[in-house]
């Protein structure tokens, strides 16, 4: 990029950045630095962090396994009702997460559409388990992955796949050997978005999975409850979550994405 940056772009960009960063400054300004180590060593903190990282990663894996094929279907296959399906996929983005949590209870809960059957047939109860946390996070985060991957697929030229087909590749082989490498950066970007969204998930989790330390109490839930009694602890927890997620995202970016 050469030449001067136009003021018409530089000013709103600076304001936008300040708006995004200022709350972080507020957090840092109020951090009780002196007793930070003691607070980080408090019981339950590491537990909540480990649970958060584990469930967000599991939710991202589920989202990739299910979401990439879904994105491919939306981008490459014309079928009746495709626009409706696309709207349905983005539904969790506009749905308040708490509503998503209630909806999940109405499906997987003891009296839910599938939950009752799961319990009587297999003895499986989903709510209040770590599995429920992963389900809640997948529900709210998978649309981010689907949208990114679908965008990448649409931008990728379908003629490479057609060429592969004329050379005798089956559609599955063309997808694996041609399409997937072509959209890999899109998948990676989508997975990062998805992971970040899952990590911050609060509403659906507390509604569907409840709150129990070590089992379903992720960092955002721990922050919320700490805020009820000890705001300083809530700030420390927020900072920890922020630092860990930024470190992981920055690390991944270096490794995966060769940004142009």
């Amino acid at each position: 990029m050469t030449g001067r940056t136009p003021l018409a772009l530089a000013v709103p960009a600076a304001v936008g950045l300040a708006f995004l960063v200022l709350p972080l400054v507020g957090l840092l300004a109020r951090t009780p630095w002196s007793d930070l180590p003691a607070r980080l060593a408090a019981p339950g903190v590491v537990e909540a962090l480990r649970l958060s990282l584990g469930t967000a990663t599991a939710a991202t894996v589920v989202s990739v396994v299910l979401g990439v094929p879904l994105a491919w279907l939306l981008a490459r296959r014309a079928f009746p009702g495709r626009r409706l399906v696309r709207a349905l996929v983005t539904l969790p983005l506009v749905l308040p997460p708490v509503v998503g949590g209630v909806a999940l209870l109405l499906v997987f809960g003891r009296r839910g559409l599938l939950g009752g059957w799961l319990e009587s047939a297999f003895g499986i109860t989903v709510p209040f388990t770590t599995t429920a946390v992963v389900l809640a996070e997948t529900f709210v985060a998978m649309p981010f992955l689907v949208i990114s991957v679908e965008g990448a697929l649409r931008a990728a030229n379908a003629r490479y796949e057609e060429a592969a087909a004329t050379l005798g590749a089956t559609p599955w082989m063309a997808f694996r050997r041609v399409t997937l490498p072509l959209v890999a950066p899109g998948v990676a970007a989508g997975a990062v978005l998805c992971w970040a969204r899952a990590l911050g998930e609060f509403g659906a989790t507390i509604t569907f999975a409840g709150n129990f330390p070590g089992r379903t109490q992720t960092m955002p839930l721990a922050v919320y409850l700490a805020l009820e009694s000890d705001p300083a602890a809530a700030i420390v927890l927020s900072l920890l979550l922020l630092a860990v997620s930024v470190a992981i995202l920055a690390g991944l970016r270096e490794r995966w994405m060769s940004t142009p």
Partner: peptide, 20 residues
Amino acid sequence: TPVTLEQDVKAALSKVRLGE
């Protein structure tokens, strides 16, 4: 040992009302 520690009394109650 509860299955969940809810963030307020109404949330605890709603878990009973939903049958969870």
